[in-house]
Each structure stands twice: as C-alpha cells, then as structure tokens.
Design a protein around this nucleic acid. Structure first.
Length: 558
RNA sequence: UGGGGUGUCGCCAAGCGGUAAGGCAACGGAUUUUGAUUCCGUCAUACGGAGGUUCGAUCCCUCCCACCCCAGCCA
C-alpha cells in the first residue's frame, strides 16, 4: 500500500502510550487538555500542541478541554483569552462545553494549600526574594533550609489566612512546599506555591491578592477535570516529580499523568512569546496578526488555511528529540493543500506594457480562461483581450541568457488563453528603460492553441488587458529573520530582516479579483498563492502573498 | 564534581533482537497553454563513539562523547 502520511492515522509515542492505557483498561475514557496562558497570541508551536491534544482526544473518542492557565494576572489579558479561543476554533477544534480556567479552581486550590499546611507539608516563608534565591543553592550545591521552615501549623495557618486577607504587600511572604532543599532537582527545593500579587485578574477581579504558581495549579486542575493524559513540552519534565508529589499529598479526585514532547522549532522563525511580544510592542510588525508573524492570526491573514497547518503539524510528527524543522516543510504543506483547490487567476505584479501592432485599435474580444487545470468542475471565466496589455517585467529580457524561455526581441511566446505574440521592438524612455514592448500576434493561435504549422513556443505568459485591469496593491512577505537560527549570536533583534515586507503598489489584477473574499486563497498563475487582505477596498484591493510557487527557473538561475 | 533528557540521510521522523518506513530538500527523466502541478527514478552496507552479550544488535549491557532543560514569588 502506498499510503501517504496524510491518509494514515498519525502515530507517535504519545498515542502509543494512550493506546496502551486504553488497552490495559488503565483509563476508561481519554481526556486531554490544551492549557494556554492568556498572555499573548497562539503560534505555530501551540498549533502542534493543539493538534496533538485535540487530535488524540478525537481519535480515542475522548475529549479535550480548553483550559486557560490564568494564574498570573500581571501578565494576562481578556483580549488574549478571546484571541486564543478564536484561533483554536479556526484551527478546526471544538472544546464543546469544556472551557475552563485555572481561576475556576482558586477556592479549591486555596483549600488544598491549607490541607498541606495542616499536614505539615507547607509553610509561610518571610524570606525576601533575593535571599531566597541565595538559599536555594546552585545546580551543584544543596540549598539551605529557611529559618521559617519550622513554623507551627497554627502560625502557618494564621499567616496564610492573613496573606489571603491582604494584610501584606507584594513579595512580603510566600507559601512554600516543604520538600527537600538538598534535592538535585531544583523544583523540589521547597518550591513556592502561592505568592502575593495585588493585581486585578481578568476573571476574578480583585477577589484575590494571592495567586497559586503554575506548579500548584496545573496538576490539581488536571485532577479536578479528570485529565487522563497531561501532555506538555520537555522543559516541564523536571516539574513532574513536583506534579506527582502534590497529587500524592492532596485529596484530589483523580490521578493524572504528565507526558512530555519536544516543542516545535522552525528555521528563520522565532516561536518565543516573549520575543513575539517585543516585536509587536516595539512596532517591528503591524500587530499580532501581521502576516509575517508565526502566530495563528498572522498565518491566517497571510492566507494559509487551517488545513495546511494541520497537515504541516502532522508531517512534523511528535517526538522527544529537540529539533528544528526546515521552514520549507511548512511552505510545502501550504502549497500541497492550496494547489488542489485554489482557483487560478491572472495578476501582473510589475507591469510592462505590451502593444500588439497588428491588433485593431479599439477592438476587444472575450476569451475563455480555465479556473483550475485539474478541477474542470470549477469551470471557466471570460477574460478580455485587446491591443494593449500588461505583462510581467520579469518576463522580458533585452539580452537574455541561453536558458531564458520568455520574451526578448524577436522571440515568440504564448499569452495564456490568448494568442502567440512575437516581440518586434522595444520602446525606451530617456533613461534607456524599457517602457513598452511592440509585438505582433498570430490570429491563428486564438485561445493559446498551437498554429496550423505546429510552431512551438517555449513559454506561456500571464497578462492582463490594460483597459480592463484593476489596480491593486500586493504585499510580498519573506522571513522575518535573516538567518535560520535567529538569536544564535545573542541578539535576536539584530537578526531581523530589514526587507521582510515588500509592498508593490502599481500592480494589476483581473476584474473578478476586485470582489475576492478576504482570506480566500487564489493562485495567481505563475507567481504564487494569494488572498485578499482586509486593508483593501473594492476599488483598490490589497493582496497578500501566502506562498510563492516552486520556481525551478529561479533556482537554476541562482 | 548536581538532577533530568536526547543523539537514525542536508532537515523532520519510523523502527521495540532478525538484517534501515515515510515526508521535506536535492538530483535525473516523462507529461504539461502555469519554468506550477502530476508522474517515474536516484538519494543511510548504515543508526554519536568504543567495547561487550548473542547465531544475529539501531534495538540488550558497560564506558565515553556531544547537545538540550533546570538555580522566576513566569508558564
């Protein structure tokens, strides 16, 4: 069987684990979760996690919760909560009624903190942050016990309640788990469970001034929701002993298990929320949805369909080895999903006037263009042919090299769906720039068909009737960073590509494109996949280049 | 000189003791009114290294090397 990667169900070690648990009856139903922190927009890395978590749930007939890990109000915003939901839906996943927030559990979490205190497993520490860091030891030296580690249960209870009551300023005290200051695992050196944060939470408002840390919220939230497989990225592996310790020391309703996979890295791309936030904040891009951004919002605006993202994620796979995927793999997935369905149209990005000397002035005729070469059901559309046309500047060379198949003085080419034309002479301006091509056409080649004498032509060009073409702006995007490993030398911003956005203003497109729906993919023949941008209007549409076509000529040329 | 991970083709990634899937890229060639698509074909005697166990090891053992993560009251 020559099954493709897309037709066979994805297989990876996570799915193997889930399958084994199901087969062994260890779980009765599969429940996963996607737990974003609402402090930024979702990006390609999140797409991998979303596809994994929702994908596993779907494949095993289980469910996947969308849970906001909103434990740090100083960084989180409602706007991000909204954007994240929009993006997950767009990617094609549905959490149904299973929308949760760690903040939904604040009261329960608080009660469990008291439970730990009662059992002598947690204590309130007055040590200032800097000193606590010094006491934590180093990677090779054990830490020191805090002098507050031996407080009585009663004192801890009173202090913790006072913390909740808002009697202390930020940073004055924290609640810590009493584990082992000498552990080789730094996360077990009496980790902080609660800190004082006098901040307004997007959901709980000012109800709280103490907030649980990630470690104290995540595993318990998983337990509360009955998550069976808590899948996260590799950097949380060190946290698993703490995750398990808390689960074991608390009367939680379930026993979730954590599994880790390697996060996604892509060449010429940065997938760090911190850096993406900086790009937006400092105006290096137009916003979170700038088409150059690796955010789902940016990618969507650029014209990439959700299906392409899913395809890409599926091709990348899931494993535990750190890796960096070639960005070309992403482009390939986009082309592969767009090619079978995107309607073909013609657009001239950098126009060059072409005048057909033997075509009657004022005459015009309607030709038929095929909408998709492989999908006849997409039908045809009428296009207007006339004496004055526009062709692409790149399609003409006055002194062409050997392998240049396109137009040059004396050369004949086919105008797609039109006629064969031969370049007879060139018009130049005072500076010697070619401003127009004077050609003749062969009436016997209508529709682009070969003439009776069987003459062959080396190239077929796209074109537009000058009088009918609609002016448009076309935006070409390239990698935001100019090296495959941005930041490898220390300063990521120094690797920002200065020319990642190229705005073409003198472009022309087919009249039909003036009403193209925003975001809907079309292929501009011979140049790439594009989609209308919301910035455009019917009079002056704006198009984004989603991805170019593969170009073996450009490659051979170097 | 701590703890936890990972090392299979240029980039991802299968493989779970029986003699190296697949995708991307690359390179040939066919078809082509997109130098696109499609289509054929080529592309790891080899699995970080060295030993060992075994009839047989990428898969088991030992040692070594390289790289990644951890010293936030971030997640």
């Amino acid at each position: 069987m020559a099954d493709t990667a897309t037709s066979e169900p994805p297989r990876d070690f996570i799915r193997d684990i889930v399958q084994a648990d199901v087969d062994a009856g260890r779980v009765t139903g599969v429940v996963t979760r996607f737990p974003p922190e609402p402090n930024g927009f979702l990006h390609l890395g999140h797409a991998k996690s979303i596809c994994l978590n929702f994908g596993v749930a779907r494949e095993f007939g289980g469910k996947c919760h969308l849970r906001f890990d909103d434990t740090n109000p100083v960084k989180e915003e409602q706007a991000f909560i909204d954007a994240i939901q929009r993006d997950v839906k767009w990617l094609g996943f549905d959490w149904g009624d299973n929308l949760f927030h760690a903040s939904d559990y604040f009261e329960q979490l608080y009660a469990w903190a008291e439970h730990l205190i009662e059992g002598g497993f947690a204590y309130v520490d007055d040590t200032p942050p800097e000193q606590m860091r010094a006491q934590r030891g180093t990677l090779t030296e054990p830490g020191q016990n805090s002098p507050f580690r031996y407080r009585s249960v009663e004192e801890n209870q009173a202090l913790f309640r006072d913390m909740r009551a808002g009697k202390f300023p930020n940073g004055a005290r924290v609640l810590r788990a009493k584990i082992d200051m000498a552990s080789g695992n730094m996360n077990l050196r009496d980790p902080v469970l609660y800190r004082i944060l006098h901040a307004t939470h997007p959901r709980t408002g000012d109800a709280w001034c103490i907030y649980p840390t990630y470690d104290f919220a995540h595993g318990q939230s998983d337990a509360i929701e009955g998550i069976t497989h808590s899948v996260c990225t590799l950097e949380f592996e060190d946290h698993k002993p703490l995750y398990d310790w808390l689960i074991e020391h608390l009367p939680v309703p379930a026993r979730p298990r954590q599994y880790e996979f390697a996060r996604l890295n892509i060449t010429y791309t940065v997938l760090s929320k911190r850096i993406l936030t900086t790009l937006v904040r400092d105006g290096h891009v137009s916003g979170w949805d700038d088409p150059r951004m690796p955010t789902l919002a940016g990618i969507r605006r650029r014209g990439v369909p959700a299906a392409a993202l899913r395809e890409f994620v599926g091709r990348v796979g899931v494993a535990r080895a750190n890796s960096t995927v070639d960005v070309q793999m992403f482009d390939a997935a986009v082309r592969d999903t767009l090619n079978p369905s995107a309607p073909r149209r013609m657009a001239v990005l950098r126009p060059l006037k072409l005048i057909i000397e033997n075509y009657p002035e004022g005459q015009t005729e309607t030709l038929e263009a095929i909408n998709h070469p492989d999908v006849p059901e997409q039908g045809t559309r009428p296009i207007t042919f006339s004496r004055e046309l526009y062709v692409e500047q790149d399609d003409f060379m006055e002194n062409p090299p050997r392998k240049f198949y396109r137009l040059s003085p004396g050369k004949e080419v086919r105008l797609r769906y039109g006629y064969y034309v031969t370049c007879r002479s060139v018009e130049k301006d005072a500076d010697g720039n070619v401003v127009a091509l004077r050609c003749t056409y062969d009436p016997e080649t209508k529709g682009g068909n070969a003439p009776p004498d069987g003459r062959k032509v080396q190239a077929t060009l796209h074109w537009l009737s000058a009088a009918d073409a609609v002016p448009a702006e076309i935006r070409l995007y390239s990698h935001l960073f100019n090296r495959p490993d941005p930041g490898a030398d220390g300063d990521v911003m120094a690797d920002l590509a200065p020319d990642s956005l190229e705005v073409l203003t003198g472009c022309f497109v087919e009249p039909a494109l003036a009403s193209a729906a925003v975001g809907e993919a079309v292929q501009f023949e011979r140049t790439g996949y594009f989609c209308a941008d919301p910035d455009g209007t019917a009079e002056r549409p704006v198009f984004n280049r989603t991805v170019g076509l593969r170009d073996s000529y450009a490659k051979a040329k170097g």
